[in-house]
């Protein structure tokens, strides 16, 4: 397996903080892997994901996506390949369909063809959102439903690597189970590489799964 993501000696300090959040952190993610990242609140798990997709800038160190430093990639290109899904899903005013097709209005996605309604309906079924209706206002969906819509919306861009920031922390157990099931399918059946920050006890099985813990400014592989 080839490394899709290489992080070397990454140090990051929040603006205004006197101490770095983490120091000289390194991690290699191979194609098809599912990395689970755990650690106490404020240890830097979410910050690490944000650094990978350039929503924040490191003090020092380098992050490479397929060998290219992410700092040298156009941000929109990077983010369509390395997709970040935030902890709290965000919808825009409009229908479910308008929200799902939102990325196709952006210039960097102009070459991609937007999925038609039939395909969207099929995908909604796969994401346990069947029967909701594409014309339903997205803001009226529950947080659990919005989280699945946010995940589906990101996947429509067919990213190589998914960065999931506590995707189930705001969800009830039933919705969380649905999201975990989707994640497992994406990883096992579709071969997507996942880097998931989580507080839960979720631990899928398989040789492609690796658990890391970030604590006291360092990252360590867990058994």
């Amino acid at each position: 397996m080839a490394a899709i993501l290489e992080i070397r000696d990454l140090t990051f300090t929040h603006e205004g903080a006197s101490e770095p959040l983490f120091r000289e952190l390194s991690l290699s993610v191979e194609e098809g892997q599912h990395i689970l990242l755990k650690g106490p609140s404020g240890s830097g798990k979410s910050s690490l994901l944000r650094l990978i997709c350039r929503l924040a800038a490191p003090d020092s160190g380098i992050i490479r996506y397929r060998g290219t430093p992410v700092s040298e990639m156009p941000p929109a290109t990077l983010r369509s390949r390395v997709a970040y899904v935030a902890q709290i899903p965000r919808m825009v005013d409009g229908t479910l369909e308008e929200n799902l097709l939102l990325p196709f209005a952006f210039a960097s996605n102009a070459r991609r063809s937007a999925p038609d309604r039939a395909l969207l309906e099929r995908m909604l079924d796969e994401f346990y959102l069947g029967g909701i209706g594409l014309d339903r206002p997205a803001m009226k969906l529950s947080t659990g439903q919005q989280q699945r819509v946010a995940l589906l919306r990101t996947l429509l861009l067919e990213p190589d690597l998914l960065l999931l920031d506590e995707p189930t922390s705001a969800l009830d157990p039933e919705s969380a189970a649905m999201v975990f099931s989707i994640m497992e399918r994406l990883n096992r059946e579709k071969g997507k590489t996942l880097l998931t920050v989580t507080h839960s006890d979720y631990r899928p099985e398989g040789p492609q799964v690796a658990l890391y813990r970030i604590e006291n400014r360092t990252l360590s592989l867990q058994p």
Partner: peptide
């Protein structure tokens, strides 16, 4: 900010 970041993560540039 979160909505702006969401759009950036879906391929928008800062103007979009």
């Amino acid at each position: 900010r979160e909505t702006v970041e969401m759009k950036l993560c879906l391929g928008a540039d800062y103007r979009e």
